[in-house]
């Protein structure tokens, strides 16, 4: 008997091919809804640190596409962890796995319902991991999720992480998006 997860999740893979559109580069790989099927998948794909630059993994609840435009995401935002180049070799894979375990295990108390998914961006200038939530105005849910996320990754209290509304990221005029919340 397998151990059912609260939600069914979908793994998406993005590979940057400049001859194609952003949406054409995004592929749904597979879905899983048990602990055992999660590991069967995780143990058989490349760890994030071995992906080429420009690739993403996204793990989202079934029915939510990993893009701002999805109706579950359009009013939401993300808790963002930015990593240094060195951290790719020391912490990236553990951080990503712990992020996945937080979301599929519903580790955010009553606020797990606000979680849409998680994304890892592998980039030459610095990798990023984010948890996306559905409503950037739900202060209580957003801050609780942020605190649990930090805890789940074992980040010390002195490290501050920020939450950015997708609407602000989408309309920014430079590479800096203001933080709506920090924990």
């Amino acid at each position: 008997l397998k151990h059912p997860l609260e939600n069914r999740w979908a793994l998406w893979f993005y590979k940057n091919d400049k001859s194609k559109t952003w949406q054409e580069n995004l592929r749904l790989i597979t879905k899983f809804d048990t602990v055992e099927d999660f590991w069967a998948l995780y143990n058989n794909i490349k760890v994030a640190s071995k992906l080429s630059s420009g690739c993403d993994y996204s793990v989202f609840k079934d029915g939510i596409e990993p893009m701002w435009e999805d109706r579950s995401n359009k009013c939401g935002g993300r808790w963002l962890i930015t990593l240094s180049k060195q951290q790719r070799h020391t912490e990236l894979d553990r951080f990503w796995l712990d992020t996945l375990l937080c979301i599929i295990g519903e580790g955010f108390d009553v606020y797990s319902a606000d979680v849409c998914g998680a994304v890892i961006n592998v980039r030459a200038k610095g990798d990023k991991i984010a948890i996306w939530t559905t409503n950037a105005e739900n202060r209580e849910a957003v801050t609780c999720i942020g605190r649990k996320f930090k805890e789940g990754l074992g980040l010390p209290a002195k490290i501050v992480i920020g939450y950015q509304a997708h609407a602000d990221t989408a309309t920014k005029s430079n590479s800096i998006t203001k933080n709506k919340f920090v924990v």
Partner: peptide, 20 residues
């Protein structure tokens, strides 16, 4: 009830054989 699993519980299944 809600199916909540903590990190240690989930990690315990990583290398479980699929069939026993």
């Amino acid at each position: 009830g809600k199916k909540q699993y903590d990190r240690e519980f989930l990690l315990g299944f990583q290398f479980m054989p699929a069939c026993v």
